[in-house]
Design a protein around this nucleic acid. Structure first.
Length: 456
RNA sequence: CGGAGUAUAGCGCAGUCUGGUAGCGUACCAUGUUCGGAACGUGGGGGUCGCAGGUUCGAAUCCUGCUACUCCGACCA
């Protein structure tokens, strides 16, 4: 599993930071994403991902892929456009409503821009899988979806076009399908934790996708769109470790996480909440939904004829679930959870760069030569570094490094360069450490590597 | 989809009421002095004033229509 290493000199990069906030931006994550030059709105609910934002998106994607693989899901890629016929089979072509973008091609064939992929994956499954021996199977892809929201808002939090990971599990019966559900449940806990988020699974409505077992994963944030109620201890529950045996029984973990009451406002049973959660443990807050998992049984396999031969020689419709994570929503969700007055404060694991090397005086030969050596050394040490080699003054460099939220700033000024000293600033704590030049790289390495959360 | 707004330089805004050569800040280019928290001086470039019609000698400004975007509500990964 390789990390994306894309070191960069700022003078070669494309980072259009804004001093002023475009007036359309309402919530803090949207404002910061625009100011940090991460995205640009191209139309209502449609965003171009600029290099810095795209880099974060790819780091998020890499974490999701690692954890999906760990849980046994297999990655593939399905097209964005789908045939209407497939959706007529499931009956959803008429049910889905105006949220689904319908398209006609030159031959007058009805197409749609996929809002989700249950039909297509079921079609693929039924074409190739005919035996229980090929189960369990969990296929997923990370692909752009389109839902023609009545009112897109909050930047990429609720955009019309959005990038989503959607996984689909196939099992012989309900018990095995619930095992698949638990594998995704555990994978999700790990996925969000690795991104520096505290996400709480909550009972959820199953919505238009249908089914009878579902959890939403919610990150607490004041700007969240849904009201949530839960037990405080859920915030500190231990995350299942990387060596969790996904082939083993995961129900103790799921039971532990679901034993404490947690529900969104749509599902809340106030009486039960007050009965089960002691007053000092009650949290009533707002949250952002960053994922949802469903078990929906044979809902699609029946109507679309996806069945396998069982060990008993009988043909059975497969039991399925679907498991979504909105990547383009996760980016603002992380920012909502991780920012201060000066800008974004990225967790190391999703930061576009791990270190910002700030050359405070490019015109000073010694200062620049020290920076060049550090830049080469940091790359060699496997750190993801952005070198601010612009001609600007120190203040501008501090301000933009703070704004774009790089976790560590390695600050090199002419005075320090002469004395053989550099300074490291921790973006989150604001703490500054002055240390000898020759210890800078190793120190950063020692601080950063554990924070990547890729060994937990 | 109901309600409310906005549209003038990349971004933030003034100018519109009361029609008369389109402005400010910032960003950008050149240049000099600066250089540890978004430096300063001097000079410079950039706008069919959202679009289409109309009124008028003359429209950013008045009138009509359209479009786009934003906010509040109902809906949602």
């Amino acid at each position: 599993m390789s990390r994306s290493q894309e070191n960069m000199r700022l003078t070669d990069y494309f980072l259009p930071v804004l001093k002023e906030v475009p007036k359309e931006a309402e919530i803090v994550s949207h404002r910061l994403m625009l100011r940090a030059g991460m995205v640009r709105q191209q139309a209502a609910g449609l965003y171009a991902w600029l290099p810095l934002g795209y880099k974060v998106l790819r780091k998020i994607q890499a974490i999701i892929e690692e954890e999906q693989a760990r849980a046994g899901a297999v990655e593939m890629l399905m097209p964005t456009l789908q045939s209407a016929d497939l959706w007529r089979e499931s009956g959803r072509y008429d049910d889905y409503g105006k949220e689904m973008l319908r398209i006609t091609d030159r031959h007058d064939r009805d197409l749609l821009f996929g809002p989700t992929n249950e039909e297509m994956i079921t079609d693929i499954f039924r074409s190739f899988v005919h035996s229980y021996k090929q189960l369990p199977l969990n296929l997923y892809h990370i692909q752009w979806k389109f839902r023609d929201e009545i009112r897109p808002r909050f930047g990429t939090m609720r955009s019309r076009e959005f990038l989503m990971k959607d996984a689909y599990s196939f099992d012989l019966d309900k018990d095995r399908a619930e095992e698949a559900y638990r594998r995704m449940f555990v994978a999700y806990l790990r996925t969000y934790y690795r991104m520096g988020l505290t996400a709480i699974p909550m009972q959820a409505e199953t919505g238009p996708i249908g089914g009878d077992l579902s959890h939403e994963f919610i990150v607490l944030a004041d700007t969240g769109e849904s009201g949530v109620f839960c037990h405080r201890d859920l915030l500190d529950k231990p995350i299942p470790p990387r060596d969790t045996d996904y082939k083993g029984d995961l129900s103790p973990i799921v039971k532990d996480w679901t034993s404490l009451y947690a529900a969104t406002e749509d599902m809340i049973d106030m009486e039960r909440f007050e009965r089960e959660v002691p007053e000092d443990k009650r949290i009533a807050a707002r949250g952002i939904e960053v994922g949802q998992i469903f078990y929906f049984g044979t809902k699609y396999s029946k109507v679309m004829g996806a069945s396998v031969m069982g060990p008993d020689g009988k043909e059975a419709f497969v039991h399925s679930g679907s498991y979504g994570i909105g990547l383009t929503r996760l980016v603002p969700a992380i920012i909502e959870a991780c920012h201060d007055d000066d800008g974004i404060v990225w967790p190391v694991s999703v930061a576009p760069f791990e270190v910002a090397l700030l050359n405070l005086k490019v015109s000073d030969a010694q200062c620049s030569s020290v920076c060049e050596d550090l830049y080469a050394g940091l790359q060699k040490a496997g750190l993801d570094v952005l070198y601010d080699d612009r001609q600007d003054g120190a203040g501008a460099k501090f301000a933009s490094a703070d704004l774009i939220g790089i976790p560590y700033q390695l600050v090199v000024g002419p005075r320090g360069a002469k004395a053989g000293e550099v300074e490291i600033k921790n973006r989150k704590s604001g703490e500054r450490t002055t240390l000898p030049l020759d210890r800078a790289i190793q120190t950063l390495k020692d601080w950063i590597e554990p924070e990547r959360r890729d060994r937990i």
